[in-house]
Amino acid sequence: MTGFLRRRAVTSLLPLIAVLLGVFFLARLTGDPANLYLPVSATPEQRQNFIEANGLDDSIWVQMWDYLGGVLTLDFGDSLRTGESAAAMALRAFPATLQLAFSTMLIAVVGAVVIGSWAAYRPNSVADRISSFLSMTAASVPDFWFAIVGVWIFAVSLGWLPTSGVTGGMASWVLPVATLVIRPLGVLTQVVRGAMVSALSAPYVRLARSKGAGDLRVVTHHALRNAAAPALTVAGDLMVGLINGAVVVETIFGWPGIGKLMIDSILGRDFAVLQACVLLTAVSIFVLNILIDIGYALLDARVREKVSA
């Protein structure tokens, strides 16, 4: 298992390094980094000071070396707007994004398992058709549409919920989570249903019934565990999507997470902060992928064997 994790970490490290270098070269390719890091109104002296302070007159390889060293020590430079360390700002914003993503996924997973299993238990029943229709709709409507309609109805027209921010306690969670959860819930419900339909018709389910296992035991004990792997794959992708897609929903709802910070830094030409945000997101996705692999291995002994072989 540890050997497997080490190997898995190494293979998923490559994309991470690619992101690192990508960010570095992007900053250089789009022109003089001084343009990126400095306000438009910077004077030529400020520019010269900046170039010297950041070694921008060194060769590109020296610069890259310095940059990588900075990344390893979490030193992305300081925010142009606040003067605070960019890494600290990104790390401070990140929990809000994670909280939103995790609560959304929790609701999506629980909902999908319950609705998907229930639909799969009686394929083509009325309940199954209704849930298939709803989940298909949910899976295909874009989040921001729900966000805008939701804000308009519940916050603006009815005034039941705050339009933005986290200050409103529980109420301020409702719209962002509801907006974010719809698509993952729709997608996951369909995946769970499909996987459960095939699990429930597998020979091991009939074997379990021949031993006198009841419906609840068959569904929760025998079928779900087998249906979990495909659901985990998709849940992982959706989770990545939630973290990446935080930009839209956090902006609409003024949610103080990494997505909003990213947008604010782009608008404020705060490149150091943007870079810290991008890398933090990349690292979290890297960690998430490893967690998913651990999940597969925990679910199925055959995976454990294959990876330790």
Binding site: Y204, L207, A208, K211, G212, R225, D300
Partner: peptide, 25 residues
């Protein structure tokens, strides 16, 4: 029927070799 499945009536299915649940010991 469920109460009788096991203590009174048992079956070894034709597809027995693939009938065990792969994810449990």
């Amino acid at each position: 029927r469920r109460q009788m499945a096991g203590p009174e009536l048992a079956i070894v299915f034709q597809d027995a070799l693939t009938a065990l649940n792969p994810v449990y010991t």
